[in-house]
Amino acid sequence: MNRPLPGGHWGKSIEVDQNDPALCLGGTSRAETEEDHRGDSLVVIVDQRILERECLASSLLSLDPVVQVRAVGSFLELQDLQVEASAILTILNGKKITDPIVRSELQEFIALVGGVPVIIVADSEAPADILTALESGARGYIPTNVSVKVAAEAISLARAGGIFVPANAVLALRETIRATESSPKPLTGVFTSKEAAVVEALRKGKANKIIAYELNLCESTVKVHIRNIMKKLKATNRTEVAYKLRDLM
């Protein structure tokens, strides 16, 4: 991982003792592990809070001694490790994934690490936050109210190529879909007739090309309608549009 990593919210470097055992758990020594490790079992925790990251690293190791665990304070420290990870656990520490700056930095980091799965750990269980994380490229979203065992299983799933989301969020989305489908309300009081038609298509997850075809519109016209819809809802992306439509309807 010899590429420059972004700073910002996660880029504040924290001075860490190079002999800190939390930097390399599950091996005999830092030097030996860095030399022999191929990244197939290395999980890296990125968390500015030293105590929390060391505790989480130790807990994960106790569940699976075969897994190597590194705990660092920032993306910049992760760059200094000079290793290839099998998964990266990023702790938000109260930050909101829907914050444009946080989301932008996360997207940049995910792009830099390539195919290494990045998993978000955050306090929120809001569907909009989870969807934003997944849209940013995260391969999992772990709320802080789950057990370490669940977190370990989520990491394993991401390492195997899957995507983890909390069950409560999936159930909440299901109920939202059911409620919307069973009791639709007219949208003409908020949107024009064309915008209302586009809204209905957006609710069903249709792509712009499909919407344009079904409504006999140019794709550029559909984009204009979507921008107007986002402006009326004060939303910044399609995910927020879908989330706010639930409340509206």
Rank of each mutant, 00 (worst) to 15 (best):
59 S>M: 06
87 A>R: 04
92 L>P: 04
72 V>F: 01
92 L>V: 00
78 L>G: 15
70 R>A: 14
80 D>M: 08
55 C>M: 09
73 G>E: 09
70 R>K: 10
63 L>I: 07
51 L>I: 12
81 L>Q: 15
66 V>K: 15
64 D>Y: 12
53 R>W: 01
90 T>M: 14
81 L>Y: 10
61 L>Y: 13
93 N>W: 04
57 A>Y: 14
62 S>C: 05
72 V>G: 01
57 A>E: 10
83 V>Y: 09
52 E>Y: 01
81 L>N: 09
53 R>I: 02
61 L>M: 07
57 A>D: 13
95 K>R: 08
91 I>L: 02
64 D>C: 08
72 V>P: 02
93 N>P: 12
93 N>T: 14
71 A>W: 07
59 S>N: 06
84 E>W: 00
60 L>S: 10
86 S>V: 09
77 E>V: 03
73 G>F: 09
51 L>G: 12
71 A>I: 04
56 L>C: 00
74 S>D: 03
59 S>G: 05
63 L>S: 02
75 F>C: 13
79 Q>C: 12
54 E>K: 09
90 T>F: 04
78 L>Y: 15
67 V>F: 10
52 E>N: 04
66 V>M: 12
91 I>N: 06
62 S>A: 09
81 L>S: 06
68 Q>G: 13
56 L>N: 02
81 L>E: 15
51 L>Q: 15
58 S>T: 09
51 L>H: 12
90 T>Y: 00
79 Q>W: 07
82 Q>D: 09
62 S>G: 03
75 F>M: 14
68 Q>M: 10
58 S>W: 05
91 I>F: 08
95 K>I: 00
63 L>K: 07
91 I>H: 07
81 L>I: 08
80 D>R: 14
83 V>F: 11
89 L>I: 08
69 V>G: 08
73 G>W: 11
89 L>R: 10
57 A>H: 10
86 S>Q: 14
66 V>C: 10
75 F>A: 09
64 D>L: 04
74 S>A: 05
86 S>A: 15
72 V>Q: 02
75 F>N: 06
91 I>C: 03
88 I>L: 05
69 V>K: 09
78 L>R: 11
55 C>V: 03
91 I>D: 06
69 V>W: 07
75 F>W: 13
65 P>F: 06
53 R>H: 02
58 S>N: 05
75 F>S: 11
73 G>Q: 08
65 P>G: 04
59 S>Q: 06
55 C>N: 03
93 N>R: 15
72 V>I: 01
86 S>H: 11
75 F>Y: 14
75 F>D: 06
74 S>T: 11
59 S>V: 00
51 L>T: 13
89 L>Y: 14
76 L>F: 12
71 A>T: 05
92 L>C: 10
85 A>M: 00
56 L>Q: 04
75 F>K: 06
